[in-house]
Design a binder for these strands. Structure first.
Length: 124
RNA sequence: CGAGAGGACCGGGCGGUCGCUCCCGGAGCGCGAGCUCCGGGGGAGGAAAGUCCGGGCUCCGCGGGUCAGGGUGGUUGCUAACGGCAACCGGUCGCAAGGCCCGGGAAAGUGCCACAGAAAACAAACCGCCUCCUCCGGGAGGUAAGGGUGAAACGGUGCGGUAAGAGCGCACCGCGCCCCCGGUGACGGGGGUGGCACGGCAAACCCCACCUGGAGAAAGACCAAAUAGGGGGGCGGGCGACGACCCGCGCCUCUCGUCCCCGGGUAGGUCGUUGGAGGCCGGGCGCGAGCCCGGUCCCAGAGAAAUGGCCGCCCCCCCGCCCCUUCGGGGGCGGGGGACAGAAUCCGGCUUACAGGUCCUCUCGCGCC
RNA sequence: GCGGGCGUAGUUCAAUGGUAGAACGUCAGCCUUCCAAGCUGAACGCGUGGGUUCGAUUCCCAUCGCCCGCU
């Protein structure tokens, strides 16, 4: 049985309430391509939320490109990431042109880093 | 062959693989909304953009009138409508094909025209020119051809005429008015006449003609947790509002009285939401924009927002190395690049951005037959 | 997605269609033993491209950039 890389809508953070919860309670980690914010979601799987605003690119095409690369990176890395998290990927770097492999690497590192910070905060 | 003009169109192709979303069919799970799997099908643009116009649609209670405000500006058409388009007229640029033009009114009124200049719009006269007078300093009168200023100076050129001159007279051109002819019309052509009157600016106020209510899908309709206790309807009276006023009808936000009823609504969800002034093919009408008839097709519907990622081959462009060459170029290998740009209620236009490429028609020049 | 508004010196703002000004800042000189303050002087420009006009920062059109409001 080969590992599947499905990515249905249920694996997306969609509602405004969930976004607000991650921003308020979650922990963050910033890298050269993105900022990652995480918080547990109480589900058996992790979910992805995207936030790529006009500060990244003024043209809608370029923003869509950034979102697609981020989304593809999450799809391919979903089994390597901790389960049961809401992962909000924020486009925080103006005029980024992300490469897929670099994005996968950074997503993995930043998610682990943010998740570690969350657990340290929870212990205190 | 070269130079150029106008128009129509395409916007990388094929395959593999991992995904997303919607629709249809089937199977499984679940009380159910639904979820999962399998198969089939659809899935960005010519500008989806800017939001500059016009319309559909929805709400603001409906209809009518006058005004205010806003818009348009050659004519005739096309259209659901338009500030769009077509044909034509006029002006202007080009040898031409053709291009460009916010192209009504300045004898309804108001305003502005800096500086310079004598004078800037209604007539006047700085230097001049001419005649006469003179105490030789100049003065009176005639004149607007010449000078100079200016973006613009009171018709232009020539001849006659005169003291010097002047439409003072004549010819041609321009301009105004009248008549005739052609055209639906803008306007064009011809004839007569006037003796020049009417400087420019209306993307200055304005006048004229025509058009025009406001908001916008976050419009709007429905279902409906948690929380909070209020909320709704009928009848009668009063005040008042939707740019202003008026008329007719309708209605009640607000408030008072009274009677009756149990719903209202945030988060969230569903609808609106994709079948339409629709695409393609054929025929007919029209110079054309377009219109009519018949056949055929269903062709994106997301929602923190799908239409993507990776790989291979082909196509086009650029660079490097090597080989061949009839010096025009051809071939091989490697590397890089392939525009502008992403639907969000829909449609008709306009505008702006854009690598490269295809097709059609026309003009001018050169050569050959 | 929709609706509004604004672009003028380095900065904050003015200006009827007729030479673009003010304050602060910058630079130079004077003054002072030196600095500051003060005085004098200078440089610095209408977002961009067209059009109307004799003439445009001003009027008209297009374009670029920025800001605000509406669930």
């Amino acid at each position: 049985m080969t590992t599947r890389f499905r990515f249905p809508r249920a694996m997306r953070v969609v509602s405004t309430r969930d976004f607000r919860r991650v921003y308020r309670e979650g922990s963050r980690a910033r890298g050269s391509l993105m900022t990652v914010a995480v918080a547990p979601n109480g589900l058996p799987h992790s979910r992805l939320g995207l936030s790529v605003g006009r500060a990244v690119w003024k043209k809608a095409v370029r923003r869509n490109r950034v979102r697609r690369v981020f989304r593809e990176a999450f799809r391919l890395e979903q089994h390597e990431l901790p389960a049961g998290l809401d992962v909000v990927v924020i486009g925080s770097v103006p005029r980024v042109e992300p490469e897929l492999e670099a994005t996968r690497r950074e997503l993995r590192q930043l998610t682990a880093k943010a998740w570690r910070r969350y657990r340290e905060k929870a212990e205190r």
